[in-house]
Design a protein around this nucleic acid. Structure first.
Lengths: 138, 138
DNA sequence: CTCGGGATTGACGCTTACGTAAACGTAAAG
DNA sequence: CTTTACGTTTACGTAAGCGTCAATCCCGAG
């Protein structure tokens, strides 16, 4: 029946060193430690050394995506924390929903900005190509 | 025939003071002057006082949009300058076209980031609503 | 034992993008 | 003429986001 046998599933799920994460996401150790200082990451400690679990890795990815979007680390913190918020009580849930509405509005504004910019770039490109073609035809 | 007569069309096209621009775009005077320091704006001077023309106003709009997109002022400078670049010679045109390709790639990455984030926010919202409904049903 | 290759914690430095205050000029209104 | 409103330059301050040492520690290989 096409089953593959004897797949090794690690009981302890995967972990990473700070250097491995740094390489994978192309950031420096300093950057990762800085995010921890700011409370964005909370890796396990074995003795003094940091051990990163899947959760930490995902969060780092979210943080970097947030940066690409131009959010500040403080804003990113509130966004990322929303993702693994515990159910909690009603007031907390309502607060979260409001946060979501706010962030969504910002993101949609950004998307409009992007679309406008892309459209204008296309226009500049068109003129550019036209000028270039005109030069070549001489 | 419904024509409206005697419309006043200013011969000297509109100009703005620094304060007017600041109010309209909701930034401080300091910010606008800072952009000038960085070479992003070059208003006319009447004596010592700055006079902003439509071109300057448009550029300010572009700068602020660039900021919302998370570009640095240096990046914004290269983007904005592309818009009113003179045709120029072939090498310059090719350079411009390359710039456009680069910027477009960045913008499209940002849009993907935004769409992913929006999708995840929607998911969080869904869970949130579910939890809230569960609380209310008790 | 020691040596190199990682890891750690300070701590200071630097750039960006303004905020903020001081000191001054100018032009219209009271 | 003085006040008020609005503009100017100069210059120091600051928060964010890391870069860049320096000093130390731990671990496995030779």
């Amino acid at each position: 029946m096409g089953w593959v046998h004897n797949i090794q599933v690690p009981v302890e799920s995967a972990t990473w060193t700070i250097a491995e994460l740094a390489t994978e996401y192309d950031v420096t150790l300093r950057t990762i430690r800085f995010y921890e200082d700011r409370g964005l990451l909370t890796p396990e400690r074995r003795g003094t050394v940091r051990v990163y679990h899947p959760r930490d890795k995902v969060r780092l990815g979210l943080i970097l995506r947030g940066k690409r979007l131009g959010f500040t680390l403080d804003e990113i913190a509130t966004i990322v924390d929303m993702y693994d918020a515990e159910p909690g009580e009603s007031g907390q849930l309502v607060y979260l929903l409001n946060q979501i509405t706010t962030r969504r509005a910002e993101l949609e504004q950004r998307r409009r900005d992007i679309d406008e910019t892309l459209a204008e770039l296309a226009e500049v490109e068109r003129r550019c190509q036209a000028d270039l073609d005109a030069l070549r035809r001489r």
